[in-house]
Design a protein around this nucleic acid. Structure first.
Lengths: 181, 181
DNA sequence: CAATCGCTTTGAACGGCGTTCAAAGACCGT
DNA sequence: ACGGTCTTTGAACGCCGTTCAAAGCGATTG
């Protein structure tokens, strides 16, 4: 992750990474099998580091609306070169050619999905949100967040992370708003 | 596009493409400059082929709701290996390393955005949709569609193109529904 | 203590990639 | 028939991810 942050994913080669780690390219592949596996394991590691904060958002005692806003902020890339999202986009394009990546990737997604469903159900149960199909809500919101994240991380001119975050939060607020009476 | 359809983007090499075209790799690069440019020009060509149908959706006389559903169907990939969307995902990951692609890509996006804004404004003007910030609606819906498209084209297990299309259409319908009184 | 044996680690070699470029070919106005 | 410009080729280049034979290392054993 540090290597990606410093020089970008495109500059990350087996030989370069090995040099940085004081070992050889062959050695890395002895354990990981392929560069694809290195990348997907790095993504997994990166996602695991977010797990505690995500768990807190699901289990926390703050109003569900606030926790949902926190979920959006945690999901989106921090900025134009967020290494976690560089990995996501790269893994997407590699998944098309390398089916072994598909399951790992689907599994990471599932974690985000299940937590969001719990969070929304929690808010509904507390009467803070209108009765909602949490599954459908999660599928839609996360797709929107994926689209926003892509734009942010590839640096589409004129897009601003915080503006897009507000779009997502506003969408959530309106969709989950309890009926006025 | 035919080569991508038949063998996938990962198998598409300069030498292989040249052989298929009865020419040499150097010759393709004489005109295109780089493989990245070949891909982005191919994407542009592919998008241009959709332009007439998109224009018809904007200018058509059918109810705006129906035209919006048509927009969703045109936007999403046709299936798991839609070559247009293989190119999109590939261009996303290359854009990160090759800034020259960014403008081309943003420009293609702009076309979809502007047409969707017109379509929604049209529906609002006709009283078919509630008064809506069409800009914001377009930013959100297209992000959602990008997220869905990614999942479809990379073949996430368990996702179905038509189910996701219905999600998008339902989101649009609910968001744009005129108030009940 | 030496021999053995599995697990690590190396780095040279490999095939294939996108790209470059000197040379050859084709075309055309004069 | 010549000259000049634009095309086209294909060999060469540097770099990539990956493979694999050989060497290194440490623990187990007689």
């Amino acid at each position: 992750m540090a290597a990606i942050t410093e020089h970008g994913l495109a500059e990350l080669t087996m030989a370069g990474l090995a040099r940085r780690l004081g070992t050889s390219g062959g050695h890395i592949l002895y354990y990981f099998g392929s560069k694809d596996q290195v990348l997907v394991e790095t993504l997994r590691w990166s996602e695991e580091r977010l797990a505690p904060r995500r768990a807190e958002l699901v289990a926390g005692s703050a109003p569900a609306g606030e926790r949902l806003a926190g979920y959006v902020d945690l999901y989106l890339p921090t900025g134009a070169a967020d290494p976690r999202w560089l990995l996501w986009v790269d893994v997407w394009s590699r998944t098309i050619a390398v089916p072994e990546l598909r399951e790992a990737q689907a599994e990471l997604d599932r974690g985000w999905h299940e937590d969001l469903v719990r969070l929304v159900d929690d808010g509904v149960r507390a009467g803070e949100f209108a009765p909602t199909d949490a599954e459908a809500f999660s599928v839609r919101l996360r797709a929107m967040l994926d689209g926003f994240s892509t734009q942010i991380v590839i640096g589409v001119p004129g897009v601003d992370r915080d503006v897009l975050a507000d779009h997502a939060k506003d969408h959530a607020r309106r969709t989950l708003a309890p009926a006025l009476l």
